[in-house]
Computed example of a mutant assay.
Amino acid sequence: MPIYGAVEAGGTKWVCALADETGQVLTTEVIATTTPAETIPAAVRFFQRGEAPVAVGVASFGPVDLNRGSATYGYITTTPKPGWANTDTVTPLREALGIPVGFDTDVNGAALGEWRYGAGQGLDTVVYITVGTGIGMGAVVHGRPLHGLTHPEAGHMRIPHDLGRDPFAGSCPFHGDCLEGLASGSAMRKRWGRPAEQVDDAAAWELEAEYLALAVLNLTYTLSPQRVIIGGGVAKRPSLLDLVRARLLDLAGGYPGDLPAMDEYLVTPALGDLSGVTGAVELAREALERTKRAHRP
């Protein structure tokens, strides 16, 4: 049975893993995201120590270049994370290990993992939203991660902002009061003066639910997903998902009329904190199959 390598490359840590053919994670190691010169070689050493994987998948924080015809394919591009802008993550792994390397965003990876093994099993189109320090969105459409001009950046969608109710200007360095600028963990910290997990004001969480419900409604109308999965640290707040469901139903106003029950439509990740790394296993599998196809006569 082949062994696959997987990396969930986050802004604070890289989770490296080996998994079997069924997607079962066998072993993991957490590597701090310090500098590319330290973090990437540490990931290489993880894969060199154990049973050799047949391919590796990387689900990375971004923005990233997913265009395989681009000279910077596999790069983390214009990230604000110090020291990581324009970092090639694919080539060092591929050259050191001599195996195919799959690559996508961390949220597309999480969407892929949940679609294959988790809350999206059996469905055609699934959206995954992570609400943590920032906000990201990934989607699987017709069984494949969604790409286009670039990868989805729904964390930066513009949503209604009632300055009377919420005078906070927003925390996004690019857009101010986009979704991430209003509803991310960073935004909550700046607005309320303490981390989201320490905010106990019911009105604060009603406001958070309002913004997330607006985002989910926009995604419902644009991508028409069969299920929306919300993960990330902020989303672990007890009762938040129920608030979002209730507000989403109100905002939808009965349109479309065939929306499923909210507790079936808007759900938490079935894979918990393993969504991203499990999705990276699928990226590895796809990279191996792509390489095989390219070498067939």
Rank of each mutant, 00 (worst) to 15 (best):
Asp20Gly: 15
Gly57Asn: 09
Leu288Ile: 00
Ser171Asp: 12
Val281Trp: 10
Gly232Trp: 01
Tyr73Gln: 03
Ile230Ala: 04
Ala284Gln: 11
Asp263Glu: 15
Val90Lys: 08
Glu38Trp: 05
Ala17Gln: 06
Phe61Trp: 05
Pro41Met: 10
Pro167Ala: 10
Ala52Asn: 02
Asp88Gln: 15
Leu223Cys: 00
Tyr265Ile: 08
Glu286Thr: 12
Asp88Met: 07
Leu26Trp: 06
Arg293Asn: 07
Ala9Asp: 07
Ala111Gly: 05
Gly138Val: 04
Ala196Asn: 02
Leu248Ser: 00
Ala204Tyr: 02
Thr12Asn: 09
Val30Arg: 15
Pro225Gln: 01
Ala287Gly: 09
Gly10Phe: 07
Leu240Arg: 05
Ala213His: 06
Glu114Ser: 10
Asn86Lys: 08
Arg45His: 14
Met137His: 02
Val126Phe: 01
Glu208Ala: 13
Gly148Ile: 12
Asp201His: 10
Ala96Cys: 04
His151Leu: 07
Glu95His: 05
Ala110Tyr: 06
Pro2Phe: 11
Gln24Met: 11
Val54Ser: 11
Thr34Ala: 07
Leu243Ile: 02
Val216Asp: 01
Leu182Pro: 08
Leu26Glu: 13
Val281Arg: 00
Glu264His: 15
Glu282Ala: 05
Gln24Gly: 13
Leu97Trp: 02
Ala209Gln: 04
Gly253Lys: 08
Thr39Tyr: 01
Glu51Gly: 13
Gly122Thr: 03
Val131Tyr: 02
Ala154Lys: 00
Arg45Thr: 14
Trp205Asn: 05
Gly138Lys: 03
Glu208Trp: 01
Leu179Val: 14
Val141Met: 12
Gln121Ile: 10
Ala215Leu: 09
Gln198Ala: 14
Pro195Trp: 08
Ile230Trp: 04
Val281Ala: 02
Ala119Leu: 11
Arg227Ser: 05
Asp20Pro: 09
Val228Met: 12
Gly113Leu: 04
Thr79Cys: 11
Ile229Phe: 11
Gly69Trp: 07
Leu251Tyr: 13
Glu114Trp: 09
Leu207Trp: 02
His147Thr: 13
Val101Gly: 02
Gly50Pro: 01
Val25Trp: 04
Arg194Cys: 07
Leu240Asp: 00
Val141Lys: 06
Val30Asn: 12
Val107Pro: 04
Asp166Asn: 15
Gln48Leu: 14
Trp14Glu: 01
Pro2Leu: 08
Arg68Thr: 14
Thr87Cys: 04
Pro152Met: 13
Pro63Gly: 08
Val30Lys: 14
His151Arg: 08
Val141Gln: 06
Leu163Glu: 13
Ala111Phe: 05
Gly134Met: 00
Leu214His: 13
Asp65Ser: 06
Ser70Phe: 03
Glu286Gln: 14
Pro2Trp: 04
Pro173Ser: 12
His156Asp: 08
Ser184Cys: 09
Ala119Ser: 15
Pro260Met: 10
Pro152Tyr: 11
Ser239Phe: 06
Val64Cys: 06
Trp205Ile: 00
Phe168Arg: 11
Gly122Trp: 12
Val126Ile: 15
Ala59Gly: 15
Thr72Glu: 03
Lys190Cys: 02
Pro82Ile: 09
Val281His: 07
Pro145Glu: 06
Pro256His: 13
Val30Gln: 13
Leu251Met: 12
Ala270Asp: 13
Glu95Gly: 00
Asp200Trp: 00
Thr130Trp: 02
Pro173Gln: 11
Glu21Trp: 02
Pro100Cys: 05
Gly253Glu: 04
Glu95Pro: 01
Gly254His: 09
Glu51Asp: 14
Pro82Lys: 09
Glu8Asp: 15
Gly233Asp: 04
Thr222Met: 14
